[in-house]
């Protein structure tokens, strides 16, 4: 085994990890904002906009992410800007476009899951439409959306690895650069996979804690029948 490859290039790998984190953070923020807006538009059925949102969500969800990354970087952005954009910006935009469609569905599902009684109570208290959404329905829905949102963002962190295919030197690409030189693919890939695992696994454990108790799907029982 050649673990010295990892030690010798540890700083390089960590710089890649930092880029992965930055990309993930930017994409989480962007997709949360756009996804929430789209989800609310669909929930409120704001007439022409909700059709546009539905079309956007359904089509994005049936196209692979890699298609967005490659074509936003090599096709759309050069066409709009007239010059090639940075790898980071392209992959960030692609990840936001892709993930916001999923977030929108989670938000819509969460909003729809709120019992009608809450809405009736809010109406009878004289809250306006905006107040009902902002102070009653959305906070209630947030608790129920949490598990799905966390697992969507775990998927997003894993998806940042696709940015390596257009050349962004994030964690996966920095590993590739190392093993393309040393030919010790096994060690480098195992180490990178381990880093992704630690991040995603701890996030999923954290997500379990964030679930609000009364609304969560009961902890699936292991060996229910054993």
């Amino acid at each position: 085994m050649h673990w010295e490859d990892i030690f010798n290039n540890f700083g390089f790998l960590m710089r890649g990890l930092a880029v992965t984190f930055q990309l993930a953070a930017v994409s989480v923020a962007g997709s949360l904002i756009i996804g929430t807006v789209l989800g609310i538009i669909r929930y409120l059925r704001i007439f022409p906009l909700s059709l546009v949102a539905a079309g956007y969500i359904e089509s994005v969800r049936s196209i692979p992410l890699i298609l967005f990354i490659v074509f936003i970087h090599f096709g759309f952005l050069p066409f709009i800007l007239g010059s090639e954009s940075s790898f980071f910006v392209s992959s960030g935009i692609a990840l936001v476009v892709f993930t916001s469609a999923y977030v929108a569905e989670i938000v819509r599902g969460g909003l729809n899951s709120i019992e009608k009684g809450h809405l009736d109570a809010a109406i009878s208290l004289g809250l306006t439409r905006f107040q009902r959404l902002a102070y009653v329905i959305l906070p209630l829905a947030l608790g129920r959306m949490m598990p799905a949102l966390v697992s969507q963002f775990i998927a997003l962190i894993k998806d940042t690895s696709l940015a390596s295919t257009i050349g962004l030197i994030e964690l996966t690409r920095s590993g590739e650069i190392i093993y393309e030189r040393t030919y010790h693919e096994l060690e480098v890939l195992l180490f990178i996979a381990f880093i992704y695992f630690v991040i995603c696994f701890s996030l999923s454990k954290l997500g379990k804690k964030l679930e609000t108790k009364p609304y969560m799907v009961s902890e699936t029982k292991e060996r229910l029948y054993a």
């Binding site: 775990i154 696709l162 390596s164 890939l189 996979a193 695992f197």
Partner: peptide, 12 residues
């Protein structure tokens, strides 16, 4: 499997 990227698994 669920906590590592598919791309890495393919490369692996």
């Amino acid at each position: 499997i669920r906590n590592t990227p598919l791309l890495l698994q393919l490369y692996f």
